[in-house]
Amino acid sequence: MEPLIKIRDLDVTFPIGKSGFFGKPTAYLQAVSGISLDIHKRETLGLVGESGSGKTTLGRAILHLEKPTRGKVELRLDDEYVDLEDLNTKELRKIWRHMQMVFQDPYASLNPRMTVREIIAEPLVVNRKGNKNDILEKVEKVAEMCGLQRDQLGRYPHAFSGGQRQRIAIARALALMPQFIVSDEPVSALDVSIQAQILNLFKELQNKLGLTYLFIAHDLATVAHVCDRVAVMYLGQIVELTETEKIFYSPKHPYTEALMSAIPDIDPDRKMNPVLSSGERPNPANPPSGCRFHTRCRYVEPHCKEVQPELSEIVEGHFVACHRAESLTLQGAIE
């Protein structure tokens, strides 16, 4: 099946450090480095990695909220691929009807000066989706779908709790009935008791509307709950990509193994046996040569320090970027 979104060799580079009279950048930080990825229709693709690994930047670059420095993103629309690179600002605004985003912090993503009704209606108003009554009707429908009550719509965001705010943000993202939604750690700012509710809402909406998600997270339990496939990122690159079960049961990349061993267990008698990666995370502005993980890898060989491994398909549907992927037997989270 043709993927909904094709990402090829995507780079996002930020200038850092300024000098001189008008501030010429002195160095560059590659937040996303040569990422290729397919996202299929109706799937939930998880994106995990420690903070600073470039997850959020990748999410924003896919939507072209952040312009990629290299590479391209294509969206399948009516059996044809649209290259987002070719679009000007106005055309991008139109393509965003099909691709939306739910942000991490529901306290920052809602304009405090607008009522909930105005917030959800804004994309409809701006895109001229019908007259005033049509829009109000649509707003109420989508709000109800996200678990908001009609009499709450006249209130301002400050009157709501974090979970309810995230419902509002989801309703806004859904207002234009997009096909694809980037969720940037949508539950990490919420109480654990609320997280499950919001995650279930995501699932429910996916079943009802046939949505496709890119689900960014750093909490592996969340990922296990909602994702069909998982991509693991390290220093701006994808190191492993496969189905959720395989990631948890039989990881093929040493970094994934280290991540999995860090999942806390609720059984107090069970001994935690973390496979710790030694050393600090390298500076992303100055990544190590060869395999970017070699400075912390337990299985490092001289070869790893010189040649950068490609992301290749080892078993059907299981992509790993490791020279030793086929020879190593790694430990999963669950035996």
Binding site: Q100, M101, F103, S109, P112, E122, V126
Partner: peptide, 26 residues
């Protein structure tokens, strides 16, 4: 860089609308 301004961009707001309706009031 505020998230609600990014959200407004994604909603399809023009620069003028972002400035007058989202940035200035705040």
């Amino acid at each position: 860089e505020e998230e609600f301004v990014l959200a407004a961009r994604l909603s399809g707001c023009s620069h003028a609308r972002i400035v007058t309706r989202h940035m200035l009031p705040s």
